Simulated scan of single mutants.
Amino acid sequence: MRAERFSRSCPATPATSLTTSLTPSLTPSMAALLALALLLALVAMPVRAHAQGTTIGRPFSGDAGNQFEYLQFIVAEDRTLTGAIINNAPRPRRDVEVQVTAIGLESRAPVWSFKQRFSEIPPNGRVEIRAAYGRFTAEPGAFTFKFTEAAAPPPVQAPPPPDAQPGPPVSDGESPTRNFCSAIFSERGEYVLEGTGPCESVAFPLEPGLVRFEVSRKGGDPISVELRDNEKQLVATLATNSTYRNLKASSKINQALRYRLQVTHDGKWTVRVSGTGLRDFGSRPSDDDASPAEPREPQGKRFELTLE
């Protein structure tokens, strides 16, 4: 009963009447002031110009790599792309194709591409590029340059002087007749290789055919000898932990290459090589320029081995 009497004495005010009483009405002068304030705020806001970062009307140059340079490229107001390509190499560039690609200012994706081919660009030469960019193509934010060209011709090697003596080529770190552990000379139409201790011998050329090897050692330790090609691939095993003072072996050579001996031995050793097409390495060095090993001293038993 008490609650019922309270509700009657405090009637609820409609929501619409409360809202109306709290909202002030705008006079014409106040509306004009509000409109002016909004206009001033819009004028003061920074303008996001679509042309910010665009290359329209702005020349650009740079290094394109591989001794190419792009110079004074510009997209004019009539949407024409012009510029120059410079060849900074000291040689002519032949069959050159230049591809220019525009990257969209907003999309950051390719929006336009153009190719032009030049039969030759001389050393430090300049060629011009001119292309229609397109009136309705999106504004460019950047350009990329791609160059392709014909392979450069191999360098021309000067012929050897008339008095040059033919001989085996010289590898890095050794002379034609010796390295740090071995030496080679010619004797009675054979190669003679002499060395001391474990060694990868000086290189020597062999022609296709059957080649004979005679291995001798000085000292009590066994000896192992392998024939390897210029890529260090195994061609033949001439001796494996042999205790013979002297042994003979032969191997069929299939390719005309330069070969080496891989010797495993603690003492002095000698290998004589005989076959067809052997080159002349000169006579045995004098005592003042002696090879690492002493001359061959054949003695003891002989062992014959043929490798096919």
Rank of each mutant, 00 (worst) to 15 (best):
R2P: 14
E187Y: 15
L238S: 02
A158P: 02
P59C: 04
V96Q: 07
E214F: 07
S25M: 06
F303P: 00
G275I: 01
E4W: 15
Q116N: 10
L39T: 14
C10L: 11
A41M: 14
P169Q: 00
A76S: 15
L210C: 05
T54M: 00
T54D: 06
N66I: 01
P92M: 07
L105S: 08
T306W: 12
F204N: 02
I184T: 03
A15V: 05
F136N: 14
P122H: 00
C199R: 01
D172I: 01
R135G: 11
N88M: 13
S61Y: 10
L305E: 14
T177Y: 00
R284C: 04
Q67Y: 11
I129G: 02
S7T: 12
F303T: 04
S113R: 09
R258G: 10
T144M: 05
L36Y: 02
G277F: 11
A64N: 03
A15D: 07
R188C: 05
R8K: 15
R58H: 06
Q233V: 09
R2N: 13
S7Y: 15
L238F: 01
K146P: 04
G197W: 11
E297F: 12
C181Y: 06
E294Q: 09
Q52M: 05
D229N: 14
D288M: 14
A31Q: 15
S251Y: 00
E231C: 06
P222G: 12
P155W: 10
A51E: 10
A102L: 07
N87T: 04
F114N: 08
A236Q: 05
L227M: 05
D287A: 15
F281W: 01
F6M: 09
F145G: 01
T240G: 01
T55E: 09
P161S: 13
D288G: 14
Y133L: 07
G267M: 06
P90M: 09
P59Y: 09
A150I: 03
I129T: 08
V225L: 05
R58W: 04
T264L: 08
L247V: 04
N241T: 10
S251K: 00
H265A: 14
T237F: 00
P176D: 01
T270I: 10
R94K: 12
F147M: 14
D95Y: 12
A249E: 04
F60A: 03
P140H: 02
L238H: 02
C10V: 04
Q52V: 08
G275M: 05
E190Q: 15
P166C: 12
S242E: 06
V111H: 05
S242T: 06
M45Y: 02
S242R: 03
R93M: 13
E304S: 08
S283I: 11
E226Q: 13
G134T: 10
G53H: 03
L234D: 06
S29D: 13
S251M: 02
P162C: 07
V211N: 07
H265N: 14
Q52N: 05
T264F: 08
L39P: 04
D221E: 14
P292F: 03
R284S: 11
E77P: 04
L261M: 05
M30T: 14
L39Y: 10
S119Y: 08
R272G: 03
S242Y: 07
T276A: 15
A132K: 11
T101L: 10
F204W: 10
